[in-house]
Simulated assay, not measured.
Amino acid sequence: MSEFRDWYNSVPFFTRYWLTCTIVLSLIGRFGLINYYNLVLDFYPFINQFQIWRPVTALFFYPIGPGTGFHFLINCYFLYNYSQRLETGMFAGKPADYFYMLLFNWACCVIIGLLVNLPLLMDPMVLSVLYVWCQLNKDVIVSFWFGTRFKAMYLPWVLLAFNMILSGGGVMELLGILIGHLSFFLQFKYPQEFGGPALLNPPAFLKQIFPDTRYVGGFGTAPQARAPTRAGGGGGGTVFGGHNWGRGHTLGGN
């Protein structure tokens, strides 16, 4: 039990509680402790009956059953793996910045969910975080099923195609990619490459609640700012190892 406690405490703060709330709320719905309909996003009760908890519970709840259990576990794996990498990598020492990015992605999921009647937000939210990590680590080699290997920048699209082939879906993945791309563009690409203002900087009160620390991480490289002169350098970043499907990443030079 002490090993589990040590592992649990080692998981970064936001990743830890996002994963915990997801598992707990999904199990509560699975065993019928709360009617699962009260946990999903539904426009009418949210607006007309003021059930304001629905956007939050729709993020954490996922219906676990014989046909969805494996997909739920894969989602939890992606959540843990890529949220942890972002939190301890590009956002290391900047908890308010990471929390603000999560809030932005979640708000986009809620708005789209209300517009298109999307009751569950776990899929697009997890894919949006995975997409941001993949954009920050484009040249990292990742391994997928059956020994296939490719650059991380293609992973979200592989998952989209994979789900379309297996289940005829893909809408959730596409929404996650679009939300992740918007988040990445506003937070990194627009200010760094196009010289625009930083549109996703957290407000001062979040910085007070989650103050910056001095820890510096080592995974992911933001897009480089364009040089003001004609003599420009490449915009690539440092590449750090890959990972095996279903396992943690392996550090190594490229």
Score class of each variant (00 low, 15 high):
27 L>I: 04
236 G>P: 03
92 A>H: 05
97 D>C: 05
234 G>E: 09
172 M>P: 06
100 Y>R: 03
12 P>W: 01
227 A>E: 15
33 L>K: 05
34 I>N: 06
19 L>I: 10
195 G>F: 01
74 I>E: 08
151 K>M: 11
198 A>I: 06
75 N>M: 15
112 I>R: 05
122 M>H: 09
138 K>S: 15
96 A>R: 00
10 S>E: 10
215 Y>Q: 13
157 W>F: 15
148 T>S: 11
120 L>H: 10
61 F>E: 02
79 L>R: 01
40 V>I: 15
71 H>K: 11
221 T>E: 07
199 L>M: 14
232 G>A: 14
178 L>A: 15
74 I>N: 06
139 D>K: 15
80 Y>P: 00
112 I>H: 05
95 P>M: 01
155 L>M: 09
52 I>S: 08
124 P>H: 03
64 I>F: 02
97 D>Q: 13
45 P>K: 03
63 P>L: 03
229 T>M: 04
63 P>Y: 01
39 L>C: 04
246 G>Y: 04
21 C>N: 08
206 L>F: 03
173 E>T: 10
142 V>T: 04
61 F>L: 06
254 N>C: 08
56 V>A: 14
59 L>F: 05
128 S>A: 15
233 G>M: 08
133 W>D: 12
159 L>E: 05
44 Y>G: 09
218 G>M: 11
150 F>T: 08
193 E>P: 00
66 P>I: 08
106 W>M: 05
177 I>M: 12
249 H>Y: 11
253 G>C: 06
118 L>R: 13
9 N>T: 08
48 N>F: 14
130 L>C: 09
246 G>E: 06
118 L>D: 10
40 V>Q: 11
169 G>P: 02
93 G>A: 09
20 T>N: 02
11 V>T: 09
62 Y>K: 04
60 F>Y: 11
5 R>F: 12
119 P>K: 02
111 I>M: 12
116 V>C: 08
32 G>D: 05
146 F>V: 14
214 R>S: 13
89 G>T: 06
219 F>V: 14
237 G>N: 08
204 A>I: 13
156 P>V: 04
85 R>D: 09
53 W>Q: 09
160 L>K: 02
113 G>K: 00
238 T>W: 10
238 T>M: 10
190 Y>C: 03
64 I>K: 03
82 Y>V: 03
221 T>H: 09
70 F>K: 11
114 L>S: 03
85 R>I: 09
